[in-house]
Design a protein around this nucleic acid. Structure first.
Lengths: 145, 145
DNA sequence: TTTTTATATTATACTAATTATAAAGTAAGA
DNA sequence: TCTTACTTTATAATTAGTATAATATAAAAA
């Protein structure tokens, strides 16, 4: 299933002018198999066993390439590291303020918000971002003890 | 009107253990009068005439204090500088990807999204963030010429 | 298959936002 | 007014991410 999504992503890249390299394949594979929305550094650490000479810059460069190709999404968090997500059908994220855990949350896209914003502001709207903040079940328990 | 909101904020601070200083007053005043969602550096530059010895750290420290007191909100943008907003009634932001302009966008709070997320994920939800991305009218024009 | 060449990777240095630290200053309660 | 805990300042440190230039390599052409 996730194999299939990875293959789709690889095909999408092939249709652009983006070359496939072992590093790129490994980064994509890790991202598509991971359910954890990793940071660039997470990816770097996860792959340094297989690619002892890989540079962090390579991870950042390739994540940017993937973003431009539309197969990876960046989630930014101020001073903290960005997290990366494979692009899938519409879902949002619920984030734990205590432990940083990110959980996918399926919800119909808020298209009407985009349309309304266009009318009210005169902008040409192309996307939106929504995130929900709270405390995950595990961290809730901890507070109680 | 904005005088009134500023006064409310000052009152809110008085009820906590937060001391009032000239720097703090000036930062708050600037933030409440500004319609531009300034960065910490914007604030620093705007006030350095009146406070030639003020340190950037003071701006950051106090913005954090205000955030903790719940009268100021931070909008984070990955590697780029955060922007700060006085906390007001529910509104969202429409952001121009070309020039960075931020426009307020009034919309009924998405309370039902929060409720649903609580049920589905088991989180205790306390807030959410939504932003709309696009191109502002001015930048749209530029592209056409 | 070999050659070619544009693109990718690496190592390193750099930038910019933000935070930490410690000394000096000051708001506000006793 | 005195005192003290909190603030400010100046400076250094930290950290995410980007730029650069030399080396390596994927993939198209011969």
């Amino acid at each position: 299933m996730s194999d299939h999504r990875l293959q789709d992503a690889l095909d999408a890249l092939k249709s652009t002018r983006v070359r496939m390299t072992p590093q790129r394949h490994a980064i994509l594979e890790f991202l598509y198999e991971s359910m954890t929305h990793p940071t660039a550094d997470d990816i770097y650490k996860a792959l340094e066993g297989r690619f002892p000479n890989m540079s962090v810059a390579t991870v950042y460069n390739n994540l940017r390439v993937f973003k431009e190709a539309g197969i990876v999404k960046e989630l930014t968090y101020g001073d903290a590291s960005s997290r990366f997500d494979s692009v899938t059908s519409d879902h949002y994220h619920v984030i734990c303020g205590d432990c940083g855990k990110i959980v996918d949350f399926h919800y119909p896209g808020l298209d009407e918000v985009e349309t309304l914003a266009e009318h009210v502001t005169g902008f040409k709207v192309h996307s939106h971002r929504m995130e929900i903040y709270g405390t995950c079940p595990k961290c809730k328990e901890k507070v109680e003890h």
